[in-house]
Amino acid sequence: MTAEVATAQTVEDAARPRRKVARSDRARSEARLGWLLAGPAFVVMLLVTLYPILQATYDSLFAYRLTAPDDKEFIGLRNYVEVLTDSVFVQALLVTLLIMVVSVVVELLLGFALALVMHRAITQLRGLLRTVILVPYGIITVVSAFAWFYAFDINSGFVNHWFSWLPFIDTDLNWFAQQGTSLFVIIASEIWKTTPFISLLLLAGLAQVPTELEEAAEVDGATWWQRMRKVVLPNMKAAIMVAVLFRALDAFRIFDNVFIMTNGANGTTVLSLLAYRTSIGRLEIGLGSAISVILFLCVLLICFIAIKLFKVNLAGARGES
């Protein structure tokens, strides 16, 4: 009898058109306050991001050189065809992807190790340890790029002298004269600078793993590696994916390190530098805008792949899922 009533009630509920759940006055005023606080920033963000994006998209349809404004001509998608079929663009894209993949993978491994150290550090040392680990992330990228450049530079650098005992390093090694060694320094500088960022995100993920689960696994006789693989990592998957996504987007837009260290010499040109060189250096606003739009679309594609294919939950890192 009770079951029948309950079923009838459910059917009735389902049949009734869904009404908006009435919110309390408090909830409404909180929502309003939320909009008031976040609204201005939202509008400003729209203005400073949407306007340039739309302007760049519009400019990319023209043959337009800044020093010849009278010769501006609508050419449709011709700039895009030219960019996408150009060997310089393809090489820049491959170099950018290489930097992105290598730096994200290494940072993820190092960042996880650092997060574990920070997580497990004894209470007295925890504050000091986190500060020390975060120092590189606090340094402005241009400053860190110069520091790395001068460290490896053949004239002013100390690296060749300190590490000349290694078989592949001698005092005459010019790191910025070949593609391989140039990319090595650029990627190493990226890793040094942003591993703390990844480790912070992973630390937040580690903190969400319930200790009872780990303890239970330990009681059941699981080894350290088994606990990591079966308990810790699956429980912090959301944090890992968010860290990977954020860093991948960041690494894909790399500019400062390359600009300072090689300015694109020896096949180290990346997409952002190519866009800069075309728009700002050559003053070819149309062609440069087309590269910028393609760069933007690549970033969107990476977001799409991460969110849709790998099911990254952006709220997951905050423990909201």
């Binding site: 530079d153 053949i154 004239n155 010019n174 910025f176 004269a177 010499a265």
Partner: peptide, 14 residues
């Protein structure tokens, strides 16, 4: 010298 591919005026002077 080994620094030729990256030698600017300052490096040349050194």
């Amino acid at each position: 010298g080994p620094g030729l591919p990256t030698a600017d005026e300052g490096a040349s002077l050194t």
